[in-house]
Write a protein that binds this DNA or RNA. Structure first.
Lengths: 168, 168
DNA sequence: TATTGTTATACTCTATAACTATA
DNA sequence: TATAGTTATAGAGTATAACAATA
C-alpha cells in the first residue's frame, strides 16, 4: 500500500508489515519443522506442550480449548488424532463426570522432548541470530506491552460461549 | 514450556512467545475485520492490495504468486473467486502468450478503499495504541533486521519449482 | 437450565499431479 | 525442454448445529 495510509505513519506501516511478515515466515518455518520432524501440526504441538507443562501432565478439555483458541469440536478432532497415535489419553474426570481429563503419555512426552531441540534451534537461527542482546530486550519489552494491551481488550471469542439461540 | 529451554535464554523465550502471540492475535483480529467488512480472506485482500499498488493495477499471475507465498494452483483458486465477484479480471498477456495479466477492476479498487480505513484503524488500536514513538522506531528497526535475515536465508519454497520427477 | 464433550456435516483452503499451450 | 497457468482431486482443518450426559 503506497497510499497516504490514512492513520498510520510510514514508520508504523513499516513496523506492521514487518511484524506480519516475520510472524508469517517464522510460523511457516516452525510448522514445517514440526511436521517433518514429528509429524505434528502447530496446534497439536501446542496441545502436547501445554500438557507437558501442566501439573501431573493432565488438563481438562475445556482448559485446553481456552488456551489453544479452538472451537470445542476442533479440539475434539485434534485430541482424537493425538489419542489415536498414543500421544495422549482421555478419561472421565473423577471430580466432574462431565469433564474429560487429557493426559500426555510417555510416548507423547518423548515426542515433545525429541522435537523441542530442533524447534528451539530453528527459532534461534531464524529469529535471534541477527539480534544483539539489546535488541532482544527491546523486542521483549515492546512486544510484551502490545500483548498485554491486546489481552486487556479481548478481541477474540468475545462471545463467552454462544447462547443456545436467541435471535436465531 | 517451563523447561530449561535448551538454547534460548528466558528473555529470548519471552520474546519468541510474545511475537507468536501478538502475531496470532493481530492476524485473528484483522482477518475477522476483513471477512465481516468486505467478505475477504486475508490472502484475497493481499492480492487486491498488491494489484492496487502495482503500476496500471495489473500483475502477472507469477508475480502475484511470488508475493503471496501460494502454490500456483492455490492462487488460481483464489483468483477464480475474486474474478467471479468482479473484483479482478484476467486476460492473456500481449507480451507473452503464456502469461495471464491480472487487473483490479473499479469494483475491486472500491472494495479495497472501503475496507482499508477499518483495517488500518484496527491495526492502530490494537498494535500502536500502547506504544510510544520510540517503541515504534525500535520495533521497526529490530523487526526489519529480522526480516532481512529471514529473507536472506530462504526458508520458504527453496525448491525452485520441483523437477518433473526424478527419483519418483 | 447450564455445562461438558462428541458427532455429523458442510465448507474453505491448500497441495500434488496431470494436463495444455506457449517460448 | 522449460515455463505459465489451469484443472481434478484428495486431504487437513475449522465451524455450526444437534445431540447425550452430568451438574
Amino acid at each position: 500500500m503506497s497510499e497516504p495510509a490514512p492513520g498510520l505513519s510510514a514508520e508504523q506501516l513499516g513496523a506492521y508489515f514487518a511484524l506480519v511478515e516475520v510472524g508469517s515466515l517464522l510460523q511457516y518455518a516452525v510448522d514445517e519443522h514440526l511436521r517433518i520432524d514429528g509429524d505434528l501440526s502447530h496446534v497439536q504441538f501446542q496441545v502436547l506442550a501445554r500438557l507437558v507443562d501442566a501439573p501431573g501432565g493432565k488438563l481438562r478439555m475445556t482448559d485446553l480449548a481456552d488456551g489453544v483458541v479452538y472451537s470445542r469440536s476442533g479440539l475434539t478432532y485434534q485430541a482424537g488424532l493425538l489419542d489415536k497415535r498414543g500421544l495422549i489419553t482421555r478419561s472421565p474426570s473423577p471430580d466432574d463426570e462431565r469433564s474429560v481429563m487429557v493426559a500426555v503419555t510417555k510416548l507423547g512426552r518423548g515426542l515433545v522432548a525429541r522435537v523441542l531441540p530442533g524447534h528451539v534451534d530453528r527459532v534461534r537461527r531464524l529469529l535471534f541470530e541477527p539480534l544483539t542482546g539489546d535488541d532482544v530486550t527491546a523486542l521483549n519489552v515492546v512486544l510484551g506491552r502490545i500483548r498485554d494491551h491486546m489481552r486487556a481488550a479481548p478481541p477474540r471469542s468475545a462471545k463467552p460461549r454462544a447462547r443456545r439461540n436467541q435471535t436465531d
